[in-house]
Design a protein around this nucleic acid. Structure first.
Lengths: 224, 224
DNA sequence: GCGGACAAACTTGTATACAATGATGGCCAC
DNA sequence: GTGGCCATCATTGTATACAAGTTTGTCCGC
């Protein structure tokens, strides 16, 4: 329908968005023929898209078995947030120092959209927007390489949240992002760095990362 | 010859090694039919391999034109080393604290191999081994997610070195890695972190990153 | 009824044929 | 001789057909 050209890229983006939004939960099987039918492109394109997602660790490909939405292990979850803890605080600092008024409006719009989604009961969408907020910060910092890394980590974090989120801690997010916004408005790099570091720590502690042997055990766990 | 199974992965690894070793200089065109002949696999596998390398930013794919070994711009070069500066020092600290005697021997063997390659005039191979040293450190730190990121950044750094290295600064590398080893032997995390940070700074300053409009200008530059 | 072997269906793996695109070189008009 | 146009060639893009593997279901012997 749209340009037939970069169809693999289009499919990959659509699938990535669906994963980020929690419309495709971890473990979902992605059958090539079905996707081919759904998106109206040949299996060649679907395979290319799945390969791209596999490189980003968003899906896991099992030879001759199929492709499944990834189920990050507890260990992988910790590692993803450790990586974010190394990358994001300093990036937030750089961003604070380069922040323009236009950037601030855009970020604020993001927060507003996140709240709207949350109040509309679209939790997955809210998580997705909340993650995108972090990517936008990297974009403001004008570091496209780091931005690409953070983008990947953020989507993986979305999978981690889908798996390990404990519901009792509700919407602490909004507070953290609001506080960050104030640091950005004040162009306070040091504060932004510290707030981001704390925000990531809070995120990890809001997860339930006791060893549950995740991937191979999800079935066994579920059935006791 | 070897297992026919994961041939795309095999080809990708072979090409990545060649790029890392400077046997395939930046800008080299990679023709699918040629590679298909060389490795004795079908174009399907070659394309999958090239797609993988493209995701790692080691090659650049131009639609309908072909695939070329990447030529990182000056800007990208700076970004890569900024990312490394965020990831590697703290990783070196963790590694120092987890370092076993076995790890130390393995790292020392790496340094020795690097020296051997250097003295044998295999500069590219030396650069490659020198980069691998950094990856090994991340492995000791037991952070596979960060290790994967550093691995990618290291190979991209190899391309950057191929493009922007100024020969007058010769083998400062060995010194830096030797100093790091001493910090590891002493299990001195703080020192390792500081040495790594300095090492990366030294690396950047040993490059000639004045704006040369890299990618599109290499021809014009060469012919003045 | 239970377990194991076999067969069918479904899904993925791979190669290849063909289409489409872009580069190259020659030709002709001026 | 120079510039633009056209034909040819080399190379990549894409779909599809077929092979190979895995899962599922059935049947039979015990």
């Amino acid at each position: 329908m749209q340009g037939k050209a970069a169809s693999a890229q289009t499919v990959a983006s659509a699938l990535e968005a669906a994963i980020h939004d929690h419309r495709l939960p971890p473990g979902t099987r992605l059958v090539e023929d079905e996707l081919s039918e759904i998106y109206g492109v040949s299996r060649t394109q679907i395979r290319a898209a799945l390969q791209a997602l596999s490189h980003r660790r968003l899906v896991e490909h099992q030879r001759n078995r199929g492709t499944f939405v990834a189920q990050p292990s507890v260990r992988e979850a910790r590692e993803v947030f450790e990586a974010r803890a190394l990358l994001e605080p300093r990036t937030a600092r750089s961003a604070a120092l380069r922040m323009s008024d236009t950037n601030i409006s855009a970020l604020q719009a993001h927060i507003d959209a996140e709240h709207a989604a949350l109040h509309a009961g679209q939790n997955g969408r809210a998580v997705s927007l909340s993650g995108q907020f972090h990517v936008e910060i990297a974009r403001v910092a004008d570091q496209s390489t780091i931005e690409a890394m953070i983008s990947q980590l953020v989507v993986r974090s979305s999978l981690i949240i889908a798996l390990y989120w404990q519901r009792r801690s509700a919407l602490c997010e909004s507070h953290a992002h609001g506080a960050l916004m104030r640091a950005f408005v004040a162009r306070d790099g040091a504060l932004a760095e510290e707030l981001m570091a704390q925000h990531l720590l809070d995120l990890v502690t809001s997860l339930d990362l006791r060893n549950q042997s995740s991937t191979p055990g999800s079935l066994r766990e579920a059935l006791i």
